[in-house]
């Protein structure tokens, strides 16, 4: 037998949970344009896979949502991560970034992934495919280094 007070609290919480469902952040699901990294340069298939699995949910305009990401307050939490991630690096806007800025951003990718800061623990906890193997990291890094060399040439011109 639940006490009367507890019952009232439970009802309040339930109503609040239903109420906040009407406040949803805008979905981060724009169509891929020619500005996207993959359209701007040749990225090997295995590296594309790494980027798609471990980075693009927060570092592009194309988030792959799970059903529970659409429920408040999870949706707010996810949205916060996405906007922060895109502020630092957005692969969907790759075209508009200068070659030198691209070199810097790719250097940050190496640093963040190399030190294990990225992908975030909270992300890899749920997204198993984002836990990168040593081989996946290596392929990512060797692509980054090769691409940085190309960008250096581009920056010169």
């Amino acid at each position: 037998m639940i006490k009367k007070n507890t019952r009232i609290y439970l009802i309040i919480v339930l109503v609040a949970l239903v109420g906040i469902q009407f406040f949803q952040p805008k979905r981060n699901t724009a169509a891929i344009t020619s500005d996207h990294l993959f359209q701007q340069t040749h990225v090997p298939g295995n590296v594309q896979q790494v980027l798609n699995h471990a980075c693009m949910d927060c570092h592009s305009d194309q988030t792959k949502y799970e059903w529970y990401h659409k429920i408040s307050p999870v949706s707010w939490y996810i949205n916060h991560h996405i906007s922060e991630g895109k502020h630092e690096l957005n692969f969907s806007n790759w075209r508009s970034i200068s070659p030198l800025d691209k070199i810097s951003l790719l250097e940050d990718v190496k640093k963040e992934v190399g030190s294990g800061k990225m992908p975030l623990k909270a992300y890899t906890l749920i997204h198993r495919e984002a836990r990168l193997t040593v081989a996946q990291r290596d392929s990512l890094f060797s692509w980054v280094e090769k691409y940085q060399e190309e960008l250096m040439q581009e920056a010169l011109n």
Binding site: L100, I103, S104
Partner: peptide, 14 residues
Amino acid sequence: STIQKIAGLNDIKK
């Protein structure tokens, strides 16, 4: 490395 220097300089500017 040269690339790290360029990236570092670019970050300073930013």
